[in-house]
Amino acid sequence: MSENTDSQGTLWEIFVQKKAGQPFVHCGSLHAFDKEMALQNARDLYTRRGEGTAIWAVPASAIVASSPEDMGPFFDTTNDKVYRHPTFYQIPEGIKYI
């Protein structure tokens, strides 16, 4: 693209909340030149059918991501800690609401 001087704007990642109280979920990306345009484009692109009531637009360059190569060692530390799960604990028969 050496000769291509055209700019389509920068990449933004879009997160949409379906309704208040629910988590913001990543739904895709888009191009925009500024914050306001990112929000407007996100509305037009990702919420045409009532998919959301709130939007987060994040410059893709601001996202820090783990690498697939790290997958083993990076998450290993949690695998041997079964005591973090409720089923690790023995509760006597007949005890309720726990």
Binding site: M1, N4, Q8, L11, G28, S29, L30, H31, L45
Partner: peptide
Amino acid sequence: LYLYTAAETLQISREELLD
């Protein structure tokens, strides 16, 4: 637009794609 951004995750820019 959904598809262009999917393609862009493969190390090609929107400008190149349109070109």
